[in-house]
């Protein structure tokens, strides 16, 4: 137990307790190119089979469009800018609604996690409303705000707000109490406590909530645009339905998937990983 040593180390000697030095930060393991190749091969195979099925003429092209015609529609859509405009309009609506949602959600979540009374009152309400699919808000939104931008923003906000609130609240609840206690001992109180301790302490959970919130917002937006909006990707889908243009439907769907994947992988996955690494939460999988 107690080391039996009769001599003392030299005064002022730089010591390194633990002996082993710092616990080495996670080593990054690059994804091997073979993985990418396998992935690419898989998707190429799918498209190949799809094309093959179309060539067999089992279903008429207005039921199942061929990949080539979908690609053509995509090309013309980008060339005459109709798809680009759709993407632009949808993204703009999304960004507006989602930003409101993040600011509101994080703020409400922080207080819900800290104030017992709010947790029991507003917190239970949030959990309840959260079970309502956001598309159910569309009729109310049109009655309250007409069928304009405000109604769409409302549906997007309501669709993504609750998951952000809940994640934030959860993150706050999981901050070790000793950390908050210690912050108070260090004289960090009031707004500083929220801004410098609670918010960063809950940040990993907040980012997870934001990621979920984004996908919820995206779905709500598509739903709302399908039902009553002009312009936007959802509106294009509706147009495709009216015009019996399946290749347009497929093209728009492909665009929606690609946008979803890009945002999820490029933005959220990166942010989430870097935050978790910095917070020391990342367990690198092998």
């Amino acid at each position: 137990m107690v080391p039996r040593k009769t001599t003392l180390p030299k005064k002022g000697l730089a010591l390194n307790p633990g002996g082993s030095g710092p616990a080495k930060a996670h080593t990054k393991k690059p994804t091997p190119w073979k993985n990418y190749l396998a992935k690419f091969g898989f998707y190429a195979g799918i498209v190949g089979i799809w094309e093959l099925v179309c060539l067999l003429h089992i279903w008429p092209p207005h039921i199942l469009p061929s990949p080539v015609s979908v690609a053509q529609t995509l090309y013309t859509g980008f060339e005459d800018k109709s798809l680009l405009i759709g993407i632009g309009v949808s993204m703009q609506r999304l960004v507006i609604g989602y930003s409101i949602s993040v600011v509101l959600g994080v703020t409400i979540g922080l207080f819900l996690g800290r104030i017992k009374y709010l947790e029991h009152s507003l917190g239970s309400a949030v959990l309840g409303i959260q079970t309502l699919p956001s598309i159910c808000w569309v009729p109310v939104a049109t009655l309250w705000f007409g069928s304009g931008q405000v109604a769409i923003a409302f549906v997007v906000v309501i669709g993504s707000l609750f998951v952000i609130i809940i994640s934030t609240q959860d993150g706050v609840k999981h901050i070790p109490p000793l950390l908050v206690k210690n912050a108070r001992l260090l004289g960090i109180e009031g707004w500083r406590l929220y801004w410098e301790v609670i918010l960063p302490g809950a940040l990993p959970a907040i980012v997870t909530g934001m990621k979920l919130g984004w996908s919820f917002a995206w779905r709500s937006l598509m739903g709302a645009e399908l039902l009553f909006a002009t312009l936007g990707l959802g509106h294009l889908l509706n147009q495709g339905r009216v015009a019996n243009d399946t290749s347009l439907l497929f093209a728009v769907m492909v665009v929606i998937v690609i946008i979803g994947l890009l945002v999820d992988h490029l933005i959220f996955a990166t942010v989430e990983r870097s935050i978790k690494r910095r917070w020391g939460l990342l367990v690198e999988e092998h």
Binding site: L178, L179, N182, P200, W279
Partner: peptide, 19 residues
């Protein structure tokens, strides 16, 4: 109440992990 004239060092490290 707690005050900065008495600082506590706890058993487990209570460093802020993000700093």
């Amino acid at each position: 109440g707690p005050g900065m004239d008495r600082i506590v060092m706890f058993q487990e490290s209570v460093l802020f992990p993000w700093l």
